[in-house]
Simulated assay, not measured.
Amino acid sequence: MYPRPLSLTVAAVLFLGLTGCGSDATDTPAASSSAAPGCTTDTTTGREDAKLLPIPPATVTVLDAGQGARRTAGAAPNRDSAQSVTLVTTSSVASAGERDAQTVEMPLRAQFSCTDSTDLEMTLGAVTAPDPILAEQLQPVEGSRAGLAIGPGAMPISLRLLPAEQAGPEARSAVEQSLIQALQLSVPLPTEPIASGARWRVERTINAATTITQHIDATLTSWTDDRLVIDVTVDQTPTNSVFAIPGSADTLTIGRYTDTGTGQITVDLGRGLPVAGTITMSGARELVGADPNKPLLQQTGLSVQWR
């Protein structure tokens, strides 16, 4: 028994990326109630109706602290204005002449809590998709809320999603998948002083249909004021040969597997989300079922953009 391509939830096994340029304008999706223009007192933390999604923790190892004067890339939350940025994700699976792909474009308005710098609150704008059926299902999502717990080094810890009224399961799944893709490919910053040219490695273990070990090698190419530009390469490998078919008790055996990516992101220490960049992943896998002479060969892809 072989799974249909998109049911493999590749998004949960792949991850984040980033292109374009961010905007700090405050005239996109409606904001939650605020005590100041750029921060909010309305939090999704502790809400009983919020869906809590843990983000796999990452370890950060500095390989080279860089040349010149070193400083700590500590968060400096901007509470003077909200962040407006658009997240665009595209995930795909192709096999035997068939290709399933899903693109979601999601405007976000992000505000730090007025009193808690680890709490980032987000309001979704008009979420769209090229697929007309999904696009229609996404319409009720506009104005819904999400929250993000952030740890040291701007590391995402958990995502909170409030249910969008009138939105069906397909729309909610698309929003959830897009945000998780981005957060699982985020690049936490070292908590020790670094300078231009610094290199560090980020490692995560991601549990999905296949348990994956993710390595991100990051290089700081420039640091101007609060903005850091970071080049990244990504390599993901399965920890074992088991592929669990989503929604089923059946499993397949992984015969071969590759998944790599490259990109660049721009981080602003005053903002909770990346302000620009792109990471593009591409891979292939061979899944073997009851008949070893008839393996399922698949090509996978993921692009995550911030603009």
Rank of each mutant, 00 (worst) to 15 (best):
T89L: 04
M106V: 12
P188G: 05
P140Q: 08
T19R: 10
T280L: 00
L179W: 14
L52P: 01
P130I: 02
L124P: 11
G272V: 05
L6N: 08
V304C: 02
E286L: 09
V187F: 08
E203I: 04
S178Y: 09
V275L: 14
G17S: 10
E142R: 13
L148P: 13
I265M: 12
V175C: 09
V229T: 15
I254G: 05
L185C: 13
D226P: 15
R172S: 15
S241N: 14
P57K: 09
T221P: 05
Y257W: 12
I265V: 09
C39V: 01
P54I: 01
T260C: 01
G46C: 05
L302R: 01
A35N: 10
R109S: 09
P56K: 03
D64A: 12
Q137P: 10
S248I: 00
C39W: 04
L124H: 14
T205S: 11
E142K: 14
S7N: 09
T213Q: 14
I55Y: 03
I216R: 07
P238D: 10
D42S: 13
E48N: 07
Y257I: 10
G301P: 06
Q305D: 15
I55R: 00
A126M: 06
T300V: 06
S186M: 05
G301I: 02
G263Q: 03
A195R: 12
I279A: 09
S95W: 01
K51S: 11
S241Y: 06
S23H: 12
R199E: 12
D24M: 08
F112T: 00
A30K: 11
A171P: 12
A164Y: 10
S92Y: 00
S241L: 06
Q299S: 11
N207P: 04
P140R: 04
P193S: 04
V60T: 11
T72H: 05
E286G: 07
A276R: 15
A76C: 05
L16D: 00
L297V: 05
R109Q: 15
E203F: 03
G46F: 01
V234Y: 07
R160D: 03
G147C: 08
L87H: 06
V13F: 13
G22N: 12
D231F: 00
E136R: 12
T191W: 03
G270N: 15
I194H: 01
A36I: 11
S196E: 15
R4S: 14
A73P: 08
S173W: 10
Q298R: 08
R99S: 07
P292W: 07
T59N: 07
